[in-house]
């Protein structure tokens, strides 16, 4: 609950790493005020370089998307829908001279720390590992920048950092503040979130809390509130999951993400077939046409 102070799981010290407890993020746009403190705290703590001063014209979002130098990204959606029972001036008043409804939604996006992580599976160097708390971690000193994780993430999160930025060439993404967690600290982004839109805590607790929250919101007028946690696809759920208002597409989230490893079987099959066919063709050719 907002303003619990140091009692909140977002503030108090913990020993999840030592106790090997699965942790996660539950992010809730219905209380996010779009202050971007999470974005800034992340960059400050992790010393992520700024990646350019470009004004986008996309509402208040000048960050754009997650990437090698953006591990938290606050989205700003301007939609012609109503948020709960909100009254927004002349818009959506529902009377004669009423205009189309309007709402402004903020959501803080982050690496999903997938149950089945495409990036982790794809990594040929073993640079990407699963930590004690179930998060997915890139070991910067091992990564050789092959770039395969980039195309293997179904959420387009991880990316290779381009020159001339500091530490270029390697792949980067949210570390779930593993360094902080090891010493019992809360991830920087959750720590600074003024309204606890980002909730950090035990994965099992969060899942309960989230489903209750969705119920509560739906009862209080947010008819399009739903959880975004693809448990039914091959990704088998994400540890940083979201409550969203409306469709996943609007947030640039894939509606049914799949971990690419499910494509391996059929691909290898046709590879072997091709291999064998080539050998046979060659032998036959030499056998009958020499």
């Amino acid at each position: 609950m907002i303003g619990e102070g140091i009692k909140s799981t977002n503030q108090r010290k913990h020993s999840y790493v030592q106790d090997r407890v699965e942790v996660g993020f539950f992010t809730d746009p219905s209380v996010c005020i779009g202050c971007k403190a999470c974005e800034v705290a992340c960059k400050e703590w992790n010393q992520v370089p700024d990646d350019g001063f470009t004004w986008s014209g996309n509402s208040y979002d000048n960050t754009g998307h997650l990437g090698a130098s953006t591990w938290r990204h606050v989205m700003f959606l301007e939609q012609d829908r109503q948020k709960g029972n909100q009254v927004t001036g002349p818009m959506g008043l529902g009377n004669a001279d009423s205009e189309d409804p309007f709402r402004w939604v903020f959501l803080s996006d982050v690496c999903k720390h997938c149950e089945e992580a495409g990036c982790l599976e794809a990594c040929p160097t073993g640079s990407i590992v699963r930590t004690e708390v179930g998060s997915v971690l890139v070991q910067n000193d091992v990564c050789n920048g092959c770039g395969y994780c980039v195309v293997s993430c179904p959420f387009g999160v991880i990316d290779r950092r381009p020159e001339p930025l500091h530490d270029a060439g390697g792949a980067f993404k949210c570390t779930f503040c593993y360094d902080r967690q090891k010493s019992g600290l809360v991830p920087a982004c959750a720590k600074v979130c003024p309204t606890e839109s980002i909730v950090f805590g035990r994965l099992d607790d969060l899942r309960v809390r989230a489903s209750e929250r969705v119920k509560h919101l739906q009862q209080s007028g947010y008819s399009d509130a739903q959880l975004y946690d693809p448990t039914e696809t091959s990704v088998r759920g994400i540890h940083a999951f979201f409550l969203i208002l409306g469709e996943p597409e609007a947030y640039g989230l894939p509606p049914r993400p799949q971990v690419p490893t499910i494509y391996l079987k059929s691909a290898w099959m046709s590879a072997f077939a091709t291999a064998i066919a080539s050998i046979i063709a060659t032998l036959l050719a030499f056998a009958f046409f020499s």
Partner: peptide, 19 residues
């Protein structure tokens, strides 16, 4: 204004293109 008419978030890529 910036209200989208296509699905997606300001036309941003959903997955990352190969580097």
């Amino acid at each position: 204004g910036p209200i989208p008419h296509k699905p997606g978030y300001y036309g941003q890529a959903v997955v990352k293109p190969p580097v």
